[in-house]
Amino acid sequence: MTPVKKHVTTKINGESVEFLCEPRQSLLEVLRDDLALTGCKEGCNNGNCGACTVVLNGRPVNSCLVLAVEAADASIETVEGIAEQGHLDPVQQCFLEGAALQCGICTPGFIVAAKALLDKNPDPTEAEIRFSLAGNLCRCTGYDKIIRAVQAAAQARLAAQQSS
């Protein structure tokens, strides 16, 4: 017997969204397969790699470890919501300029987690960046460029704040 589908209303990147899901479906599955938000990636599907990172009610989470039905009445931010009005966020810009990616599968998760870090701690030390991004794995092993991109993004954000 297939369980009854659940009707979920939630907010994704500031917009109200409704969907039907089976209780077994992960938030990652619904975001990618039903809502066409394919920026979040399925890496390990067990909470180790962070490629599926989204921000749920202000906290970074692995969307593979959230049931979609748990997202009812929540607020979700995905990588698709990070660029504002066609302008890349400093984190995205610095990943691009610093070539902080190789194959790119881990990149959306890194960008979501790095932006969440800078929103909370605008001027982190290198150790704080590495500690906060420990839940995001890059198997091309480009970590140094990623760390440098996050440091550059922090500086860019601080400079933009000072000039405004």
Binding site: G47, G50, T53, L56, R59, P60, V61, N62, L65, V66, A113, A116, L117, S132, L133, A134, G135, N136
Partner: peptide, 9 residues
């Protein structure tokens, strides 16, 4: 316990 994402949940 895990990384930041795990600690959120």
């Amino acid at each position: 316990i895990g990384g930041w994402q795990i600690q959120s949940r």
